[in-house]
Amino acid sequence: MQIGLTVGDSTERLAATAAEFAFAELSIGESAYGPGDADDELRDALDASDADLCVHLPFDQVVSTPVTQLNDAIVDYQTELLDWAGSVGARKAVLHATMRNPHDTDQRPTFADQLSAIAAAGDDAGVEVVVENVGHQARGLPLSVLGDIAEETGTAVCFDVGHAYMEDGNDAIDRFLGGHADRVSHLHVHDVRGRGDTHLPLGAGEVDYGVVAEHLSGFDGTVAIEVFTDDVPLLEDSARRVRDHLDGGA
């Protein structure tokens, strides 16, 4: 298991916080870090931190729509970003599982085709695409649907523990991991309160990480601390807590 952290779109935050972590996850594309804008600074920050790179693909675009031309353009854009990510040595790329209308069951095969095409582009670039659950959001696929499509397409999953809790509490975490833990290659970890507070340090909310440990004890993938702070000791405490759970299974 390797533990890193999300750094948004900021190479400055990466430089300030990533030194104690195995990797940094950088948001790229529209409304985020623009590939080519400051690549020398990015490389310098990664070298100084001795951190590997993962990326988060854009939040703004859905993965699929009912319009073929738009779908083709989405794949082309994501492919361009993945090619860049591969060129700077990124290991994984997180993709939100979103559709124009996630409740349109007739369009779910289109989402599966889009996901397969984007994952294949990642393979070509040497970057593992991991699809993230965002079922608590208006355009996000429900967890149960995402699990089935990930199995069908053979796509790795970025399981966001806090997002799953927001969708249906600790039961949602248990159900998804009970059926699809073997698809999970990457984790986003943070704590959540039911009133809507998210991305809290572990231990500050209501997520039962013991449930995660029941299914992922001995996890050998990557874990990104997604806590919205630049307080390094606080980030390190969340890293220690998740390591204690997943290494010890308690």
Score class of each variant (00 low, 15 high):
129 V>R: 08
90 A>I: 00
228 F>N: 14
106 D>T: 08
173 I>W: 01
79 T>E: 15
210 G>Q: 13
12 E>I: 05
92 K>I: 06
202 L>V: 05
18 A>K: 11
171 D>W: 06
30 E>C: 02
211 V>E: 11
38 A>C: 13
18 A>P: 07
13 R>Y: 02
9 D>R: 13
5 L>N: 07
86 G>M: 08
137 Q>W: 06
129 V>F: 09
43 R>F: 07
11 T>Y: 02
4 G>K: 03
230 D>A: 15
12 E>V: 09
71 N>Y: 11
60 D>A: 15
127 V>K: 02
30 E>I: 08
75 V>Q: 12
239 A>V: 01
118 I>T: 13
239 A>H: 01
209 Y>G: 08
184 V>P: 07
89 G>I: 00
171 D>Q: 14
194 G>N: 13
174 D>W: 00
45 A>S: 15
19 A>R: 15
134 V>E: 09
186 H>A: 06
7 V>N: 15
73 A>C: 11
186 H>D: 05
77 Y>V: 08
190 H>E: 12
137 Q>C: 08
246 L>S: 07
112 A>F: 08
36 G>I: 02
119 A>I: 05
144 S>W: 02
141 L>R: 09
172 A>T: 07
43 R>A: 15
40 D>E: 15
227 V>S: 08
195 R>E: 12
234 L>V: 13
127 V>Y: 02
176 F>L: 14
82 L>N: 12
127 V>W: 03
175 R>C: 03
220 D>L: 03
240 R>N: 09
191 D>L: 09
195 R>P: 00
21 F>G: 11
213 A>Q: 00
177 L>W: 02
82 L>G: 13
224 A>T: 05
128 E>G: 07
34 G>S: 11
236 E>K: 00
29 G>A: 13
62 V>F: 15
150 A>I: 00
145 V>C: 05
242 V>G: 01
186 H>T: 05
33 Y>H: 14
57 L>E: 12
36 G>W: 02
214 E>C: 11
108 R>Y: 04
27 S>L: 09
214 E>G: 10
220 D>K: 03
87 S>P: 02
165 Y>D: 08
147 G>M: 10
72 D>G: 15
76 D>G: 15
24 A>S: 11
190 H>R: 11
132 E>P: 06
105 T>S: 13
151 E>C: 04
103 H>P: 03
30 E>S: 08
57 L>H: 12
4 G>M: 03
121 A>P: 14
4 G>W: 01
161 V>D: 01
209 Y>K: 02
146 L>Q: 11
90 A>S: 01
206 E>D: 14
22 A>T: 06
74 I>N: 14
131 V>G: 07
227 V>Y: 03
238 S>M: 00
241 R>V: 09
84 W>V: 06
88 V>R: 08
159 F>H: 06
84 W>C: 10
76 D>A: 15
243 R>V: 03
10 S>E: 10
180 H>T: 05
102 P>M: 12
214 E>K: 13
65 T>K: 12
152 E>H: 11
183 R>I: 00
87 S>L: 01
149 I>E: 07
241 R>L: 12
25 E>R: 07
97 A>Q: 08
180 H>M: 03
129 V>S: 11
158 C>V: 07
81 L>E: 09
67 V>E: 13
49 S>D: 14
151 E>N: 07
152 E>W: 04
205 G>R: 09
